[in-house]
């Protein structure tokens, strides 16, 4: 196992919910490049936590399912509280991301001293994206560009790099999948710098079956709309 010295200050956070079929491979691939991989098991019932632990990850376990945003925030809190890592990488457990992309993104954050590095599948070379998924994602992007005042081309990509400064300022509280927009919306108001890096998403049969349904976009919009109006 060869670990780049330069990734020793990086902690990869992988939210896991019933990913027994993919998590071992993902953790193993990550561990080849990153020393610290933290899986936040969001109440899986298929033994994902044990598989992830066996594959070499640190596993935090939510006793009950709380949603991906909550799982990520738990991972972020772990990084802030118990490690002195300079960077946190968020990485999906279903194998849709490429580890090399994560490495490149950390490098981009380092080189430009950037707070948040986002991945974009639309400028990269994604494999076989379903057409309906493309339409829903594009609509989401327009919405985020409008609300978060962010010049991004992909808003719901699970691959991100945040430095410690960003971790300290962003707090994910939104239910379900709306946290992705919540995270993006927090960048500009908190004075964080960001950059988007083209990446690849593998739309395997597994990741499509496990992924979000397009209809869930309605839930995301509703959560966001209520939260947006709820400015105390």
């Amino acid at each position: 196992m060869k670990i780049d010295e330069t990734t020793d200050d990086v902690c990869v956070v992988v939210p896991v919910f019933n990913e027994a079929g993919a998590v071992a491979e993902v953790v193993t691939a990550l561990r080849e490049r990153f020393a610290h991989v933290v899986c936040v098991d969001d109440g899986s019932t298929d033994g994902s936590d044990q598989i992830a632990r066996a594959a070499g990850a640190t596993v935090l376990r939510h006793a009950i399912n709380q949603g991906q945003g909550a799982a990520l925030q738990t991972g972020f809190d772990h990084v802030l509280r118990y490690t002195d890592a300079s960077y946190a990488v968020t990485f999906d457990a279903d194998g849709q991301h490429v580890v090399d992309d994560a490495v490149r993104m950390v490098q981009a954050a380092r080189d430009g001293n950037i707070d948040v590095v986002l991945a974009s599948r639309f400028t990269g070379a994604s494999t076989d994206m379903p057409a309906a998924r493309r339409i829903v994602l594009k609509a989401g992007i327009r919405f985020t560009r409008w609300t978060a005042r962010l010049e991004v081309t992909d808003t719901h990509n699970g691959l991100r790099v945040l430095n410690r400064r960003a971790l300290g300022r962003i707090r994910l509280t939104m239910p379900r999948m709306a946290y992705a927009s919540e995270l993006l919306s927090a960048i500009v108001p908190n004075g964080l710098s960001y950059v988007e890096v083209p990446t690849t998403v593998n739309y395997t049969a597994y990741s499509v079956a496990k992924g979000q349904t397009n209809l869930n976009a309605v839930n995301i919009l509703f959560d966001l709309a209520v939260n947006r109006m709820r400015v105390t």
Partner: peptide, 14 residues
């Protein structure tokens, strides 16, 4: 509930 679950997860691991 989210806060409670998170705190449990963090403490247990530690």
């Amino acid at each position: 509930l989210v806060q409670l679950t998170r705190e449990l997860a963090l403490r247990h691991d530690h």
